[in-house]
Protein backbone atom coordinates (compact mmCIF):
# COMPACT_ATOMS: atom_id res chain seq x y z
CA UNK A 1 0.00 0.00 0.00
CA UNK A 2 1.36 3.33 -0.95
CA UNK A 3 1.63 6.02 1.66
CA UNK A 4 2.13 9.61 0.82
CA UNK A 5 2.95 11.98 3.59
CA UNK A 6 3.19 15.68 3.87
CA UNK A 7 6.65 17.15 3.91
CA UNK A 8 8.50 15.86 6.93
CA UNK A 9 11.50 18.10 7.51
CA UNK A 10 13.23 15.57 9.70
CA UNK A 11 13.13 12.87 7.05
CA UNK A 12 16.29 12.32 5.05
CA UNK A 13 14.66 10.28 2.31
CA UNK A 14 12.69 11.66 -0.58
CA UNK A 15 11.31 8.26 -1.52
CA UNK A 16 11.41 4.84 -0.03
CA UNK A 17 10.19 1.73 -1.82
CA UNK A 18 10.08 -1.76 -0.32
CA UNK A 19 8.97 -4.92 -2.05
CA UNK A 20 7.13 -3.04 -4.77
CA UNK A 21 5.34 -5.37 -7.17
CA UNK A 22 3.42 -4.33 -10.23
CA UNK A 23 1.59 -6.65 -12.59
CA UNK A 24 -0.06 -6.03 -15.91
CA UNK A 25 -2.34 -9.03 -16.19
CA UNK A 26 -0.14 -12.02 -15.65
CA UNK A 27 3.03 -10.15 -16.58
CA UNK A 28 5.06 -9.11 -13.53
CA UNK A 29 6.89 -5.92 -14.42
CA UNK A 30 8.18 -4.89 -10.99
CA UNK A 31 8.92 -7.81 -8.73
CA UNK A 32 9.61 -6.94 -5.10
CA UNK A 33 11.67 -3.88 -5.94
CA UNK A 34 13.52 -1.96 -3.20
CA UNK A 35 14.75 1.59 -3.67
CA UNK A 36 15.67 4.55 -1.49
CA UNK A 37 16.28 8.02 -2.78
CA UNK A 38 17.77 10.45 -0.29
CA UNK A 39 16.94 14.13 -0.10
CA UNK A 40 19.08 15.98 -2.56
CA UNK A 41 20.40 12.82 -4.15
CA UNK A 42 20.63 12.48 -7.93
CA UNK A 43 19.82 8.94 -8.99
CA UNK A 44 19.84 7.66 -12.56
CA UNK A 45 17.91 4.57 -13.57
CA UNK A 46 19.04 2.51 -16.54
CA UNK A 47 17.41 -0.55 -18.00
CA UNK A 48 16.55 -2.18 -21.25
CA UNK A 49 13.48 -0.99 -23.06
CA UNK A 50 10.43 -2.60 -21.48
CA UNK A 51 12.24 -3.34 -18.21
CA UNK A 52 9.74 -1.27 -16.23
CA UNK A 53 11.53 2.06 -15.74
CA UNK A 54 8.52 4.17 -16.70
CA UNK A 55 6.28 1.92 -14.68
CA UNK A 56 8.36 2.54 -11.56
CA UNK A 57 8.35 6.26 -12.18
CA UNK A 58 4.59 6.33 -12.69
CA UNK A 59 4.10 4.50 -9.41
CA UNK A 60 6.32 7.04 -7.63
CA UNK A 61 4.38 9.86 -9.30
CA UNK A 62 1.11 8.46 -7.99
CA UNK A 63 -0.20 7.82 -11.49
CA UNK A 64 -0.49 4.10 -10.86
CA UNK A 65 -1.91 3.05 -7.53
CA UNK A 66 -2.69 -0.55 -8.39
CA UNK A 67 0.46 -2.02 -6.82
CA UNK A 68 1.55 -4.03 -3.82
CA UNK A 69 4.46 -3.35 -1.51
CA UNK A 70 5.46 -0.32 0.54
CA UNK A 71 5.85 3.08 -0.96
CA UNK A 72 6.68 6.19 0.97
CA UNK A 73 7.09 9.50 -0.73
CA UNK A 74 7.80 12.50 1.45
CA UNK A 75 6.65 15.90 0.34
CA UNK A 76 6.00 17.27 -3.10
CA UNK A 77 6.58 15.30 -6.27
CA UNK A 78 7.07 16.80 -9.70
CA UNK A 79 7.40 15.03 -13.01
CA UNK A 80 8.84 15.86 -16.41
CA UNK A 81 7.89 13.36 -19.08
CA UNK A 82 9.70 12.30 -22.20
CA UNK A 83 7.45 14.51 -24.27
CA UNK A 84 7.06 17.94 -22.68
CA UNK A 85 3.28 17.48 -22.40
CA UNK A 86 2.58 21.17 -22.33
CA UNK A 87 -1.08 22.10 -22.32
CA UNK A 88 -1.39 23.57 -25.84
CA UNK A 89 -4.23 25.98 -25.03
CA UNK A 90 -2.34 27.62 -22.21
CA UNK A 91 0.46 30.02 -22.89
CA UNK A 92 3.89 29.19 -21.51
CA UNK A 93 3.27 31.14 -18.33
CA UNK A 94 -0.13 29.49 -17.85
CA UNK A 95 1.49 26.08 -18.17
CA UNK A 96 3.99 26.87 -15.44
CA UNK A 97 1.38 28.30 -13.06
CA UNK A 98 -1.16 25.53 -13.69
CA UNK A 99 -2.18 24.02 -10.35
CA UNK A 100 0.48 26.05 -8.57
CA UNK A 101 -0.60 26.82 -5.02
CA UNK A 102 1.79 29.43 -3.73
CA UNK A 103 1.06 33.00 -2.61
CA UNK A 104 2.40 34.63 -5.81
CA UNK A 105 2.21 32.05 -8.60
CA UNK A 106 3.02 34.41 -11.46
CA UNK A 107 6.13 35.78 -9.78
CA UNK A 108 7.25 32.24 -8.97
CA UNK A 109 6.65 31.15 -12.56
CA UNK A 110 8.56 34.11 -13.91
CA UNK A 111 11.50 33.19 -11.72
CA UNK A 112 11.36 29.58 -12.92
CA UNK A 113 11.16 30.68 -16.56
CA UNK A 114 14.14 32.97 -16.02
CA UNK A 115 16.07 30.02 -14.62
CA UNK A 116 15.51 28.00 -17.78
CA UNK A 117 16.24 31.05 -19.94
CA UNK A 118 12.75 31.49 -21.36
CA UNK A 119 11.65 34.79 -19.90
CA UNK A 120 10.92 36.29 -23.29
CA UNK A 121 8.78 33.29 -24.32
CA UNK A 122 6.40 33.48 -21.38
CA UNK A 123 3.43 34.72 -23.44
CA UNK A 124 3.62 32.46 -26.48
CA UNK A 125 1.58 29.37 -27.29
CA UNK A 126 3.39 26.08 -26.66
CA UNK A 127 2.94 24.98 -30.27
CA UNK A 128 5.29 27.72 -31.39
CA UNK A 129 8.18 26.48 -29.20
CA UNK A 130 11.08 24.37 -30.41
CA UNK A 131 11.55 20.93 -28.87
CA UNK A 132 14.29 22.14 -26.55
CA UNK A 133 12.29 25.16 -25.44
CA UNK A 134 9.23 23.06 -24.74
CA UNK A 135 11.29 20.65 -22.67
CA UNK A 136 12.72 23.57 -20.68
CA UNK A 137 9.21 24.85 -20.00
CA UNK A 138 8.33 21.39 -18.78
CA UNK A 139 11.33 21.53 -16.43
CA UNK A 140 10.29 24.97 -15.21
CA UNK A 141 6.77 23.69 -14.59
CA UNK A 142 8.20 20.88 -12.47
CA UNK A 143 10.76 22.96 -10.59
CA UNK A 144 8.45 25.85 -9.75
CA UNK A 145 6.67 23.46 -7.38
CA UNK A 146 9.92 23.26 -5.40
CA UNK A 147 9.64 19.46 -5.30
CA UNK A 148 11.27 17.20 -2.78
CA UNK A 149 11.32 14.51 -5.43
CA UNK A 150 11.80 15.25 -9.10
CA UNK A 151 10.97 12.43 -11.50
CA UNK A 152 12.38 12.67 -15.02
CA UNK A 153 11.37 10.06 -17.59
CA UNK A 154 13.86 10.27 -20.46
CA UNK A 155 13.20 13.97 -20.79
CA UNK A 156 16.23 14.59 -22.98
CA UNK A 157 15.95 11.74 -25.44
CA UNK A 158 14.13 13.73 -28.10
CA UNK A 159 16.58 16.62 -28.02
CA UNK A 160 19.40 17.07 -30.50
CA UNK A 161 22.91 16.55 -29.19
CA UNK A 162 23.77 20.22 -28.71
CA UNK A 163 20.53 21.11 -26.99
CA UNK A 164 20.94 18.08 -24.82
CA UNK A 165 24.32 19.22 -23.55
CA UNK A 166 22.83 22.58 -22.65
CA UNK A 167 19.87 21.05 -20.89
CA UNK A 168 22.16 18.69 -18.94
CA UNK A 169 24.05 21.70 -17.68
CA UNK A 170 20.78 23.42 -16.85
CA UNK A 171 19.44 20.45 -14.92
CA UNK A 172 22.59 20.12 -12.84
CA UNK A 173 22.49 23.81 -12.18
CA UNK A 174 18.88 23.73 -11.05
CA UNK A 175 19.46 20.60 -9.02
CA UNK A 176 22.37 22.20 -7.19
CA UNK A 177 20.26 25.23 -6.44
CA UNK A 178 17.04 23.50 -5.34
CA UNK A 179 18.42 20.16 -4.16
CA UNK A 180 15.46 17.89 -4.80
CA UNK A 181 15.91 14.15 -4.81
CA UNK A 182 16.05 13.23 -8.50
CA UNK A 183 15.18 10.01 -10.24
CA UNK A 184 16.27 10.28 -13.85
CA UNK A 185 15.18 7.48 -16.15
CA UNK A 186 17.40 7.23 -19.17
CA UNK A 187 18.70 4.72 -21.66
CA UNK A 188 21.88 6.69 -22.16
CA UNK A 189 24.71 5.35 -19.99
CA UNK A 190 26.86 8.44 -20.57
CA UNK A 191 24.07 10.74 -19.50
CA UNK A 192 23.62 8.75 -16.31
CA UNK A 193 27.35 8.86 -15.56
CA UNK A 194 27.68 12.57 -16.22
CA UNK A 195 24.78 13.57 -14.01
CA UNK A 196 24.08 11.12 -11.21
CA UNK A 197 25.42 10.34 -7.76
CA UNK A 198 24.24 6.80 -8.17
CA UNK A 199 23.38 4.78 -11.26
CA UNK A 200 20.91 1.91 -10.99
CA UNK A 201 20.16 -0.85 -13.43
CA UNK A 202 16.64 -2.23 -13.49
CA UNK A 203 16.36 -5.83 -14.61
CA UNK A 204 13.85 -8.59 -13.99
CA UNK A 205 11.69 -6.23 -11.99
CA UNK A 206 14.37 -5.31 -9.44
CA UNK A 207 17.37 -3.08 -9.02
CA UNK A 208 19.91 -5.56 -10.31
CA UNK A 209 22.96 -3.38 -9.96
CA UNK A 210 24.09 -0.03 -8.68
CA UNK A 211 27.23 2.04 -9.14
CA UNK A 212 28.19 5.06 -7.07
CA UNK A 213 29.74 7.87 -9.03
CA UNK A 214 31.82 9.89 -6.61
CA UNK A 215 33.33 12.36 -9.04
CA UNK A 216 32.82 16.10 -8.77
CA UNK A 217 30.81 17.82 -11.50
CA UNK A 218 31.11 18.89 -14.24
CA UNK A 219 32.53 15.57 -15.31
CA UNK A 220 34.61 14.65 -18.31
CA UNK A 221 33.14 11.88 -20.40
CA UNK A 222 36.52 10.13 -20.75
CA UNK A 223 37.58 10.28 -17.13
CA UNK A 224 39.17 6.85 -16.43
CA UNK A 225 36.72 6.10 -13.64
CA UNK A 226 33.75 6.82 -15.88
CA UNK A 227 35.22 4.72 -18.67
CA UNK A 228 35.46 1.82 -16.30
CA UNK A 229 31.98 2.33 -14.88
CA UNK A 230 30.61 2.61 -18.37
CA UNK A 231 31.86 -0.81 -19.36
CA UNK A 232 30.56 -2.31 -16.12
CA UNK A 233 27.14 -0.81 -16.73
CA UNK A 234 27.02 -1.78 -20.37
CA UNK A 235 27.85 -5.35 -19.45
CA UNK A 236 25.09 -5.22 -16.86
CA UNK A 237 22.73 -4.01 -19.51
CA UNK A 238 23.66 -6.99 -21.67
CA UNK A 239 25.61 -5.02 -24.22
CA UNK A 240 28.74 -6.96 -25.11
CA UNK A 241 31.70 -4.70 -25.65
CA UNK A 242 33.92 -5.65 -28.52
CA UNK A 243 37.08 -3.68 -28.00
CA UNK A 244 36.04 -0.24 -26.88
CA UNK A 245 34.38 2.59 -28.65
Amino acid sequence: MATRTARDVTSTTAAQVKGLTKRFGSRVVLDGLDLDIARGEFVALLGRSGSGKSTLLRVLAGLDRDTSGDLRVDGTVAVAFQEPRLVPWKRVLGNVTLGLRVPAPVAAADTALAEVGLTERRDVWPLTLSGGEAQRVSLARALVRDPDLLLLDEPFSALDALTRINVHRLVLDLWERHRPGVLLVTHDVDEALLLADRVLVLDDGRIAHQSEVALPRPRERDHPELVELRSVLLTRLGVALEGSK
Binding site: A61, G62, E83, R85, V87, W89, L98, G99
Partner: peptide, 25 residues
Amino acid sequence: AKLAEVGRVLQLGRIALIRHIVLPG
Protein backbone atom coordinates in the same frame (compact mmCIF):
# COMPACT_ATOMS: atom_id res chain seq x y z
CA ALA B 1 -5.01 11.01 -21.64
CA LYS B 2 -1.43 12.21 -21.32
CA LEU B 3 -2.67 15.71 -20.57
CA ALA B 4 -5.09 14.34 -18.02
CA GLU B 5 -2.07 12.73 -16.34
CA VAL B 6 -0.28 16.05 -16.35
CA GLY B 7 -3.29 17.46 -14.54
CA ARG B 8 -3.08 14.73 -11.92
CA VAL B 9 0.65 15.20 -11.47
CA LEU B 10 0.07 18.92 -11.03
CA GLN B 11 -2.49 18.08 -8.34
CA LEU B 12 -5.45 19.63 -10.10
CA GLY B 13 -8.73 18.79 -8.41
CA ARG B 14 -11.63 17.40 -10.43
CA ILE B 15 -13.19 20.75 -11.12
CA ALA B 16 -9.87 22.31 -12.12
CA LEU B 17 -9.10 19.33 -14.34
CA ILE B 18 -12.41 19.75 -16.14
CA ARG B 19 -11.96 23.48 -16.44
CA HIS B 20 -8.32 23.60 -17.54
CA ILE B 21 -7.86 20.36 -19.44
CA VAL B 22 -11.09 18.60 -20.40
CA LEU B 23 -13.32 21.41 -21.62
CA PRO B 24 -10.68 23.35 -23.57
CA GLY B 25 -9.54 20.05 -25.04
